[in-house]
Design a protein around this nucleic acid. Structure first.
Lengths: 236, 236
DNA sequence: TTACAAAACTTGTATATACAAGTTATACTA
DNA sequence: TAGTATAACTTGTATATACAAGTTTTGTAA
C-alpha cells in the first residue's frame, strides 16, 4: 500500500525543512489539506500527528497548526541516526577506522546485556574521525542469530545500511542512556583526548520491529564535541 | 469531555508500570479491548498509539501488541519532568535553596533567548541538594508577560506546580540541548564539585500550548550524578 | 504423518459521519 | 460608535464500515 498519510507527512515535512513554509505561520486547515490531497480529513490528521510528534508543528484547537522553528537549536540529533547519516547531514569530513572485529568470548557482560546464551556475539570497535580528530569510539555488539556474517568492509562503511538493506532487518526502537565517565585506557589509547578527564557514554539497546533485542552499543564521545538535541512534549 | 482514549491509556500504562501485566506478554487484541471498555476499535487504537509512543508497547502487525520492559534502564528521565516529581519518584531526600530571584537587566543574553524586548524577565538561581550533596544548579528565566509574580516561596517549592495550577498556563513542549562544559566560577562556588573538571549543561526552551516561548532554563549537573534516559523510535 | 490450503484471527489504512470545543469574523442592537 | 450575540470557521473526540496485510490455527488431502 502507498500509505497516503506518510506521503503527505513527507511532503509537508520537506516543505518545512526547506523553509518553503516559514516558521510561525499556519498550515492550511485540515479540510483544505484534505481537498488538496484528494483524501479524507482523518488521513490528513494522521499526517499532522506525525508532524506534531516530530516537532514540526504545534496544533492549537480552534486556530490551526502552527509551523515551528525546527532549526532553533540548529540540528536535531535525537532519534536513531547512524554516524554516516549524521556526518553527511552536517557536511563534515569523516573517517571510520575498524580497530577490531571478532567473536566475543562467552562470559563477557554483553551476553547478559543481549540476554543471549545460545548464539555467539559479534563485537566490533571503531574509531570515528571528524575533521582529522579522533573523536568517537564506537563499540557494537550483535548476536549471530540476526547478523550471521560481518566483515571489515561492512564495518568501515555503514553497518546500519547493511543490516537494513542487505539483511532485510527492520529496526524498530531503541532505549538509550547517556552518562559521563572517566576515560578507560582504551579510550586514551585510541582517541585524541589529551587534556580531557571525562568521556560522554551513550549506551543503547536496539530492537527490531518484532521487539527482539538485536544490538548493544556503547558510543564514547570526547566531551567538547558532544551535543545531544531533544524534542519533548509534555505528557498531559 | 472525559477523553475515553486517555482514560484507557492511563489504565493500561498503570498496569504495565505496576507490573500487573508482565513484560514480553501480549495485550488483549484491539477488538477485545474495545469490548472490555465498551468503545470502538479506533478509540482503543488511539490509546495504543500513545502507549507505543511512550515506549510501553511494540505493535506487531498480524500478531498483537507486545508489552515492553519499561524498567530496562530502570527509570526514564526523558520528557519534561520537574525536579520535584523526579526526586519523589526516585524517593531521594532532596532540598532546594534559592540563591537568587530578581529581574534581569536589559541587555543580558536571555532577552535574545526568549526573543523578547517588551517585557522584563524574571531570573532565579537555585541549588538542588540530593542526599546532602549540592549536585545541580538551576538557572530559570521567565518573561513577566506570562509570569507576573514570582516569590522565593514559590521557587523553593515547585515553579511548575505554580505555573500550571495557580497561573493556569499549559506547557506544551520543549527543545533541549545537552552539552558538557567547564565549570564556571559560580558552579564552583555553589556546588560540591571539588575534583570535577566538567559540568553537564541542559539548556531548554519551553513553550506553552499555543506555541508561545515562555521559559529558558539552564540546568547544570555534576557529571557523576548525571543520567539521561531516552526512548527513540526509528523513523521509517 | 506430513504438506498444503483455507479459515480465522491479528493489526494497518482509508473513508464517512456526527457532534464537541475553541477561535475569529460578521452582523446586529443599543 | 461600542458592545454583544451569532455565525462560520478551526481542531478534538467518538463511532462505523470496508478492505488490505501479516500471522496463526485449523482442516483436508496425499
Amino acid at each position: 500500500m502507498q500509505r497516503k498519510y506518510v506521503a503527505i507527512y513527507d511532503e509537508l515535512a520537506s516543505k518545512i525543512d526547506k523553509k518553503e513554509w516559514v516558521a510561525y505561520s499556519m498550515l492550511p486547515s485540515e479540510n483544505e489539506l484534505a481537498d488538496m490531497y484528494q483524501t479524507s480529513r482523518e488521513t490528513v490528521r494522521k499526517a499532522l500527528n506525525l508532524l506534531s510528534q516530530n516537532g514540526y508543528i504545534q496544533k492549537i484547537q480552534g486556530k490551526g497548526s502552527m509551523i515551528l522553528d525546527v532549526n532553533k537549536f540548529s540540528f536535531p540529533v535525537s532519534g536513531i541516526v547512524s554516524f554516516k547519516e549524521l556526518a553527511k547531514n552536517l557536511q563534515l569530513t569523516s573517517k571510520t577506522t575498524v580497530i577490531n572485529l571478532e567473536y566475543i568470548a562467552k562470559g563477557h557482560s554483553v551476553y547478559n546485556q543481549l540476554e543471549n546464551e545460545d548464539y555467539r556475539i559479534w563485537g566490533t570497535t571503531r574509531v570515528r574521525e571528524i575533521q582529522g580528530e579522533k573523536i568517537i569510539l564506537d563499540k557494537d555488539y550483535f548476536t549471530e542469530e540476526y547478523v550471521p556474517i560481518l566483515s571489515e568492509t561492512i564495518c568501515k562503511e555503514s553497518i546500519y545500511e547493511y543490516i537494513e538493506n542487505e539483511l532485510g532487518l527492520s529496526i524498530g526502537f531503541a532505549q538509550k542512556e547517556i552518562t559521563v565517565e572517566e576515560p578507560t585506557n582504551e579510550d586514551k589509547a585510541l582517541l585524541d583526548i589529551e587534556g580531557f578527564s571525562t568521556i560522554v557514554v551513550i549506551k543503547s539497546l536496539v530492537y527490531l520491529d518484532d521487539a527482539s533485542l538485536f544490538q548493544y552499543t556503547e558510543s564514547r564521545h570526547r566531551p567538547d564535541k558532544f551535543r545531544f538535541v531533544d524534542f519533548a512534549r509534555r505528557i498531559k
